[in-house]
């Protein structure tokens, strides 16, 4: 029952003298780094190379690299989407708040108001809202 098993061995260094793998024994499942010993006295290493060929470990290593790359890309895409969504919401809020200011809402400068509606960044929206506000404020004076 306590027989040791090895799963998913992949190279841990470029020299291929270390392998990282899942090791399962009586106390559970854990990750282990197994190092090839000069005198051939590491039974775990012997067990791995007896079960897996170099080619199989190469293939596992490549598969693992691909997986890491895929997850990294996926995470990056999710992050980009989240940032994009947050920026869009922030831009929406800036424009909505600007048009709730009566001086801007009721301004007769249609051209600038249309520019504010079409603005694509928070900075642009803020600048245009400020110009409109100042312009209307001067009219009031």
């Amino acid at each position: 029952m306590n027989e040791k098993r090895i799963e998913n061995p992949i190279w841990y260094n470029e020299e291929k003298t270390q392998i990282i793998c899942n090791m399962i024994n009586g106390s559970g499942r854990f990750t282990a780094v197994v190092t090839k010993s000069e005198d051939g006295s590491n039974p775990d290493w012997d067990m791995i190379v007896a079960k897996y060929t170099n080619q199989e470990i190469d293939d596992n290593t490549q598969k693992n690299k691909n997986n890491i790359e895929r997850i990294k890309n996926q995470k990056f895409e999710e992050y980009k989407l989240q940032v994009d969504k947050s920026q869009k919401e922030a831009l929406f809020n800036v424009k909505a708040e600007a048009f709730e200011i009566d001086l801007i809402k009721n301004s007769s400068n249609r051209e600038l108001k249309n520019k504010l509606r079409r603005s694509k960044s928070i900075l642009e929206a803020q600048i245009l809202a400020s110009i409109l506000y100042k312009e209307e404020l001067e009219k009031v004076k």
């Binding site: 909505a96 709730e100 249609r110 108001k113 249309n114 509606r117």
Partner: peptide, 14 residues
């Protein structure tokens, strides 16, 4: 409602 008001203001402007 607030969105409809913004839309109506943009319609009146144009």
């Amino acid at each position: 409602y607030k969105a409809a008001i913004r839309s109506a203001v943009s319609l009146k402007d144009n």
